[in-house]
C-alpha cells in the first residue's frame, strides 16, 4: 500500500488534492498544505541562488521564497507567461513551520480522491526522485503525480542545496 493509501484508509477515506500543471505534466498536492493561489506579478531575484530558487515575493508584507518546482524536479526552468501563478504552500513539517511559493503554469481543480484512485509510485520512469512522490492518481484521462510537499520542499534540504551552490 502506498503512503497515500495508508493515509486514506486510516483517516477519512477521502482526501482533497489541488491539481496544477507545469508544462505538460500534472501534479497534485494535499489541499490542506496549500494556503492560496496568487497571480504571478514579478519576482525579486536573490543574488547567487541556485536555479530552483526563483526569488522572493512580497505577499501582503510577508517576504516569501518562491521555488521553481520544475527545476527542483529535474526539468527545464519554467517559462513565465500571462497565466503563470504562484501557489502558496504552508509546511508544518517535522522540521519547522515554513511558507513558500511554487511557480505553476496553471492551477486546475480540487479533486477528492479515495483509496482506489491512487496507485503506488512507479519504481522508475517518472524521472522524479521516488521519495518526492506519494502516489499517482488517474483523474479523468490524465495521470496526476501526487507530491509529498514536506519532502520535496524540505527547508533543510533546500538550504543545503543553496549552500552547495555557494561553495
Amino acid at each position: 500500500m502506498s503512503q497515500v493509501a495508508e493515509q486514506l484508509s486510516t483517516s477519512t477515506q477521502r482526501s482533497q488534492y489541488l491539481t496544477f500543471s507545469i508544462g505538460k505534466e500534472h501534479f497534485g498536492m494535499e489541499l490542506h498544505q496549500t494556503r492560496e493561489i496568487i497571480e504571478y506579478a514579478g519576482i525579486t531575484e536573490v543574488p547567487l541562488m541556485p536555479q530552483f530558487l526563483s526569488g522572493v515575493i512580497n505577499l501582503r508584507g510577508e517576504v516569501l521564497p518562491v521555488i521553481d518546482l520544475s527545476v527542483r524536479l529535474g526539468r527545464e526552468p519554467i517559462t513565465i507567461h500571462k497565466r503563470t501563478c504562484v501557489i502558496v504552500v504552508e509546511l508544518h513539517g517535522y522540521e519547522q513551520y515554513c511558507v513558500l511559493g511554487l511557480l505553476a503554469d496553471a492551477v486546475n481543480e480540487v479533486v477528492e480522491l479515495s483509496l482506489s484512485d491512487v496507485e503506488d509510485a512507479p519504481a522508475f520512469g517518472a524521472k522524479i526522485r521516488a521519495e518526492f512522490i506519494q502516489g499517482i492518481a488517474k483523474v479523468k484521462d490524465d495521470f496526476v503525480i501526487l507530491l509529498d510537499a514536506e519532502k520535496t520542499l524540505s527547508p533543510i534540504e533546500l538550504a543545503s542545496l543553496v549552500e552547495a551552490e555557494l561553495q
Binding site: 517576504v63 516569501l64 513558500l100 533546500l158 543553496v162 555557494l166
Partner: peptide, 14 residues
Amino acid sequence: IKPLGPIFKPLKGI
C-alpha cells in the same frame, strides 16, 4: 527587518 527564512541561511552578505 523581515527575516529571509531558513532556506537562505547559507547566503552570506545578506
